[in-house]
């Protein structure tokens, strides 16, 4: 029985990269977007409509 460990490691590394990547990029994006929304909402009116 040959050892297939290399193939197994490759698959799990790839899956971690893809699923982890999509999660992390989404987290980062959400963090950025939600801070900017909060900034927009808290901006005083005269500044907001300038």
């Amino acid at each position: 029985m040959p050892d297939y460990s290399v193939y197994v490691i490759a698959v799990y590394a790839l899956a971690t990269l893809v699923y982890g990547g999509i999660t992390l990029s989404s987290w980062r994006a959400i963090k950025g977007i939600e801070t900017r929304i909060a900034q927009q909402k808290n901006m005083p009116l005269e500044k907001k409509y300038h």
Binding site: I22, T23, S26, A29, I30, I33, E34, R36, I37
Partner: peptide, 16 residues
């Protein structure tokens, strides 16, 4: 989980 997470990102982007 991932779909809801993405939905949160997209909704935020649209609101912004």
């Amino acid at each position: 989980y991932l779909v809801i997470l993405k939905a949160r990102e997209i909704r935020g982007r649209r609101i912004l």
